[in-house]
Design a protein around this nucleic acid. Structure first.
Lengths: 282, 282
DNA sequence: TCAATTATGAAATAAAATTTCATTTTTCCT
DNA sequence: AGGAAAAATGAAATTTTATTTCATAATTGA
């Protein structure tokens, strides 16, 4: 658990003087890990025992122990940050930036996800008579990938990246069917309509989208995938990758729910590909 | 820089007693961060000043500073590791594991990539008369995504996830054409053949695959994307995500090479979608 | 308003780390 | 091999840092 977040959370349970300490720490945590208790006390205009009490209130053994926690929080607090690609970056630079931004987005996406909703979504998927994945543009790829995965599970699954097919399919859906609608923006009119049509026809609609979007409002279960897109390049990047990771999560949840016998079956599916491949040397 | 690695590296520049300290630390770093200098000295059967000298030799200000570094290394030494999903994991657990494994794979993939080869690939792509993306199974999605991106650049681009179409397209290729062949295993026979056919017909073949595979041998430029796949679940997961990140890198390299005027054009492409979306409130 | 509770800091104490310096060990030259 | 020089080491002293104690101040609640 990140101690900086903890400080923020407990800010209002702290006393006046302790809050001063908290503010100094939050404003410049990296300075604090190199300060003595005396230096920090002075900085916050309070006494040393107050700093000590502050540390204990955060469930640390004392000031040195607190600094240890702080150092750890700083180390893994922002391992990857969203860095924008610059006009003059060379290949090395933009490659690193893109990979790091992608990792930062995955980190963010994971935080925005609610495990209990994932659990419900998996519930619904395992019980579905038929599963449909709908997406357009970059999200079409995610739908395509989902089909590829769920197909292996030997359940009826379709994917459409065509507005008309999606509409027709939505209208034909019924109780027991699950429709997964994927859209980063959650604002694509035709997809929102499809979600609403499917819902009217008693299908369970799972939305993979950003929190609080028009699409989210139409869904039975919303799996929020919040990422920061680098809009400078006018292309969807991180969003679809975070969505794919979520598809992996759903597929994994599905296989776990189905038990070990089911997984043996997956192995058979995979093994069936062997003859199409060149042997591995060792 | 990870201090544990540093200790390992400098092990032979240390004196006998200092090495004892190093060994105690390496054998149980997490204990050490909660030990006083006296406790550590006793543990290693040496004196306190020796511990202090040891710390300084590692370019830290002293023992407390050393502990801070150690704490940080423990926190981000293995920020994301490939953790396998377990039978009894709950939703929270398997979600975290999958996201973290994905991030670990991206980290690994970035390391396996060679920036100069990316640069050459971008060169070739910007000069291409026609670009084709080929993949099968999970890699088909990557090819699909690549088409979606490069299509925006207003260059002739196709994608095929059908063996026959791929073969026909490869046979029809000529000098100036670029064929991008995507396969994680690099062992899918029909794809290796397609690569070789395209090459025979003077197309430039870019391979997105693992290092040292049959496919890699057939390519003009090999972009190595090495990841660890969790084979327990018999589904491609990390590999396709790392490949997609590479597609982002190539697309970004392409837009940078084309200059700022070109990027204005991308904005227009994106803006053309606006009318199909619900307005954002603020 | 005033007793009770809680918060705070000065000073004392305790703990931990560092420095100094004498002793031991190792190195390297003849 | 022998011995001076250099390097390594630890005991003790010192310094720095953190914690505790306790008296005082501020706040709360009847």
């Amino acid at each position: 658990m990140n101690i900086l977040e903890k400080i923020t959370n407990e800010l209002d349970t702290l006393s006046k003087s302790e809050r001063k300490v908290a503010e100094v720490i939050l404003s410049s945590p990296s300075t604090v890990i190199h300060s003595s208790i005396a230096a920090l006390a002075k900085q916050a205009n309070i006494s040393e025992p107050t700093v000590n009490r502050f540390c204990r209130r955060l469930d640390t053994k004392g000031y040195p122990d607190f600094k240890l926690h702080l150092a750890q929080s700083l180390a893994n607090g922002t391992p990857y940050v969203n860095r924008h690609v610059d006009e003059n970056d060379n290949a090395e630079e933009y490659t690193s930036k893109i990979f790091e931004s992608t990792m930062a987005s995955l980190e963010l996406a994971r935080k925005s996800l609610d495990a209990s909703l994932i659990n419900r979504a998996v519930d619904v998927l395992t019980q579905a008579n038929k599963i449909s994945f709908f997406g357009l543009g970059a999200s079409a790829i995610v739908a395509h990938d989902a089909q590829n995965k769920f197909f292996r599970f030997n359940v009826p699954v379709v994917y459409f990246d065509d507005i008309l097919m999606q509409r027709m399919s939505a209208i034909n859906s019924r109780q027991g069917d699950v429709v997964v609608v994927i859209s980063h923006t959650g604002r694509t009119k035709s997809l929102v309509e499809v979600a609403s049509l499917a819902k009217e026809n008693d299908a369970t609609v799972i939305g993979i989208t950003t929190t609080d979007t028009p699409l989210a409002k139409e869904c039975s279960i919303v799996l929020s995938v919040d990422v920061i897109e680098d809009t400078d390049l006018y292309m969807p990047m991180s969003s679809r990758i975070a969505q794919l990771a979520l598809i992996d999560v759903l597929a994994t949840g599905f296989t776990l729910r189905r038990g070990s016998k089911f997984r043996d079956n997956l192995k058979k599916v995979k093994d069936s590909l062997r003859s199409s491949r060149f042997e591995k040397k060792d």
